[in-house]
């Protein structure tokens, strides 16, 4: 752990702790949220649109629900969506990239052309179409985004494999008669995991943003389930007079996306520097 933090630097470490903090809030939402029932959607009309106060730290929304509780419950949905998008993209993209890069030739050509086709789909448009065809919902939104995202992982994995494939120790394994499957699983996959992990961390922020954008457009989660994008959209009607309504979820999205971005950079950046040579 100490090694990891040293590698991440102070900015990366703060980001990591913030992300863990938000994840813990989401997991223990029923315990930590001040008003769990409101977080789940129960209205509380009497206190509607209360500005931030000691009772409601971030104010209340148009149904009088505590914004703190709503944002905490919203974290559950947002983090899950982001995680699913990245995981699904990895699950599709990684094997395709590994196979294309390792075998090369026509297999590479075929797989990469398919990849290019998917790369050409605009994510939001596809999501709109899928929502129209299958109805809005978190699963559909996730699939729609992942379908346009996995090609990046395929390309990244392929590029890593192309470098590794030429390494003498991989060639040595081939010459010893080690099977292709063993070479890929034992020698190539472990070495591609780090760049892909970095990419996944960097992508978590955009995934969060895209999921929020979908909800904002009414294509993702439907009320009364709390979701940051959808909350920003609802709060828009009361902006700027009741600024806290849109600002609370909006700022949360912003800070969390930033944290993932900084963390990803920190993970990637540790083998840079050449030491401080006097000049």
């Amino acid at each position: 752990m100490r090694d990891l933090l040293k590698r991440l630097g102070w900015a990366g470490s703060i980001s990591l702790f913030f992300i863990i903090f938000v994840a813990l809030l989401a997991i223990f939402a029923p315990v930590v949220a001040p008003f769990p029932t409101q977080g789940l959607g129960a209205p509380n009309i009497a206190d509607k649109l209360t500005p931030p106060s000691t009772e409601y730290w971030l104010g209340t929304d148009h149904l009088g629900r505590d914004m703190v509780s709503r944002v905490i419950y919203g974290a559950r949905v947002s983090l899950t969506t982001g995680l699913l998008i990245v995981a699904l993209s990895l699950v599709i993209g990684l094997p395709i990239g590994l196979l294309a890069g390792y075998f090369g030739g026509w297999i590479d050509d075929a797989l990469m052309r398919v990849t290019d086709v998917f790369l050409a789909f605009p994510a939001l448009l596809l999501a709109v179409l899928m929502a129209a065809a299958m109805g809005p919902g978190m699963v559909n939104a996730t699939v729609a985004v992942a379908v346009t995202w996995w090609p990046w992982y395929a390309r990244l994995a392929r590029a890593e494999v192309l470098v590794l494939r030429g390494q003498p120790y991989i060639e040595a394994a081939r010459v010893m008669g080690v099977s292709h499957g063993t070479i890929i699983l034992r020698h190539i996959l472990p070495s591609t995991s780090r760049p892909l992990a970095v990419q996944a961390a960097l992508d978590f922020g955009p995934a969060l943003l895209t999921a929020s954008a979908l909800s904002f457009l009414g294509l993702g989660i439907l009320p009364p389930t709390a979701d940051w994008g959808q909350m920003v959209n609802a709060g828009r009607a009361f902006f700027p007079l009741r600024w806290w309504y849109a600002a609370a979820p909006g700022m949360t999205i912003f800070v969390l996306a930033l944290a993932f971005s900084v963390l990803g950079d920190a993970l990637r950046g540790d083998d840079g520097g050449q030491g401080d040579v006097a000049r």
Binding site: Q167, P168, Y169, E171, A173, H187
Partner: peptide
């Protein structure tokens, strides 16, 4: 030629 390249680092 180079054992450090031909032996897997992992």
């Amino acid at each position: 030629q180079n054992p450090f390249l031909s032996l897997s680092p992992r």
